[in-house]
Structure formats: structure tokens, C-alpha cells
């Protein structure tokens, strides 16, 4: 009986023509997952409340605008399309936009073997010259990026060497909000937030101090949820000899 009551509440929709039933409150992204359809995501992680900011998971639902599957609730009778020429062009374009500000000298890849943005770039065929060299100290800010798909490159954001555990490369941050939700909501340390507006938005520790001077407890959650090279674990080989010395490079350009 209880079972039946539950079934009656279920929401029925189709995704790429395949019917699926989900519990009320489920998102389109979750519904797609139950069918084994993996939508590209950058800002979403199933452990976190979705925010829908990277726009990669866009799908068509028969409305004039595309909608972000990670935040949009499934609705009865909805007909969702997860792939089309239009979606492909938009997803590739979004990735190119992000890459045009992304350091070509990818710092996360050599350490963990994964960089969600660079992987997506490969999958979507984005036009971008990744140089897969190792090393986070690389070049000074100002020459770290390349145009992507004809979109002019931007650079000049800070590197923060102050934490003994986590290396922060603001230039590689795509403002996906995952570290913020990981720090604030999962670990309840509430160290990370965003500051600034528009193109000058960036993550900030406490009231915008270098990470090593913040109330960070080095739990590592932010590094773990970060999909890019913006937050990476400092390897022993890169620990500065004089830990106080390197400080923050290019802080003033922010």
C-alpha cells in the first residue's frame, strides 16, 4: 500500500524519448542519471546543493530558453532533449570561454590525473592549445593563457602560495562555487566565499586574506571538490624551502 502511494506521487517525464519516473523534487540531471545519461557538469557535484552557474548541463525542454538540468526540477510530462546541434555548440562555446582564461600550463593534471575542464575540452573538441607541463610555479602571471576558439585570452590573476597544504591559482578558478559549498556546507568551516563582481569576481578566504593567513584548517575538502587546477594539493617537491617566502604573487592586479 505504502509502495503504491509512493508510485502515485512519482513524476513521469521522457528524456531523449525514454520514459522515466522520479520522486518529486528530483532534478532533470538526477532523472537523466537513472537512465545512465551522463550530462556534462562543472559546477555540480551530487554531494552539494546545485547552483547552476557553469551552464554546461544545459538541456532543451521545449521552452524558448535552454535550462540547466542540475537545478531544474523534473516536471510531469516534460520532454527533455540532452543532445542536439544547438546544445553541442553552446557547450563547446562555454568551455572555450573558460579556457580562454585558463592557464595552459595545467597544474592539477600531473598531480591527480584529472582536470574536469581540460577533459571536457577534449570531449567537446574545443579549440585550445593545452600544454601539459608540470609545475605550479611556472611562469609569472601575464603570459599563462592562450586564446580559445578565437576568443581573446585573459590573464593576470594571483597565485597564492601561502597555505602549506593547498596551492591556489586564481587564474584557473572557474567560479563554480564547489569549494565554497564544500567548505561551508559539507565541512561547516565557512572559510571560503566570493568577492568582487562580474569579471572581477573571485573566491576569497575569510574577509579576503591569503589562504595561509585565513581560518582554514587544511581539511582538504575544497581541493577535493575543485574541478580545475585552481586548488591543488601542494606536493612535497614544491613546498617552498622557506615556507614564508613566496607569499602571494600578483595580488595587486586583482
Amino acid at each position: 500500500m505504502a509502495r503504491q502511494g509512493r508510485d502515485e506521487q512519482m513524476i513521469g517525464l521522457t528524456i531523449d524519448g525514454r520514459p522515466v519516473r522520479v520522486l518529486p523534487g528530483a532534478t532533470i540531471w538526477e532523472a537523466a542519471r537513472t537512465l545512465g545519461i551522463d550530462l556534462p557538469v562543472l559546477c555540480h557535484d551530487p554531494r552539494l546543493e546545485p547552483v547552476g552557474v557553469c551552464r554546461l548541463c544545459l538541456v532543451e525542454v521545449g521552452e524558448p530558453k535552454l535550462t540547466a538540468a542540475c537545478v531544474r526540477g523534473a516536471e510531469e510530462g516534460m520532454e527533455v532533449r540532452t543532445s542536439s546541434e544547438r546544445l553541442e555548440v553552446c557547450r563547446r562555446g562555454l568551455v572555450e570561454l573558460l579556457l580562454s582564461d585558463y592557464p595552459v600550463d595545467v597544474s592539477r593534471l600531473p598531480k591527480t590525473g584529472s582536470d574536469a575542464l581540460v577533459e571536457l575540452a577534449g570531449e567537446l573538441g574545443a579549440d585550445w592549445p593545452a600544454r601539459r607541463r608540470s609545475g605550479e610555479t611556472g611562469e609569472a602571471p601575464g603570459s599563462r593563457t592562450e586564446p580559445a576558439g578565437g576568443i581573446p585570452a585573459g590573464d593576470g590573476r594571483a597565485l597564492d602560495h601561502t597555505s602549506k597544504v593547498i596551492f591556489v591559482d586564481h587564474q584557473a578558478c572557474i567560479l563554480c562555487d564547489r569549494c565554497i559549498r564544500g567548505c561551508d556546507d559539507l565541512q561547516v568551516n565557512e572559510v571560503i566565499g566570493r568577492t568582487g563582481k562580474g569579471y572581477r569576481t573571485r573566491i576569497a578566504f575569510d574577509l579576503d586574506v591569503p589562504m595561509g593567513e585565513s581560518t582554514c584548517v587544511s581539511c582538504g575538502e575544497c581541493e577535493k571538490v575543485c574541478p580545475t587546477g585552481a586548488l591543488s594539493l601542494r606536493g612535497w617537491e614544491t613546498l617552498p624551502e622557506d615556507a614564508a617566502a613566496p607569499g602571494v604573487e600578483g595580488w595587486e592586479v586583482l
Binding site: G52, V53, S100, I174, L175, G198, T201
Partner: peptide, 9 residues
């Protein structure tokens, strides 16, 4: 506001 990728960049 800088929230979403297309507009911020």
C-alpha cells in the same frame, strides 16, 4: 554580477 559563465566572461 559574475554568477554565470557566459555573462561573466
Amino acid at each position: 554580477c559574475g554568477k554565470c559563465v557566459p555573462c561573466r566572461l
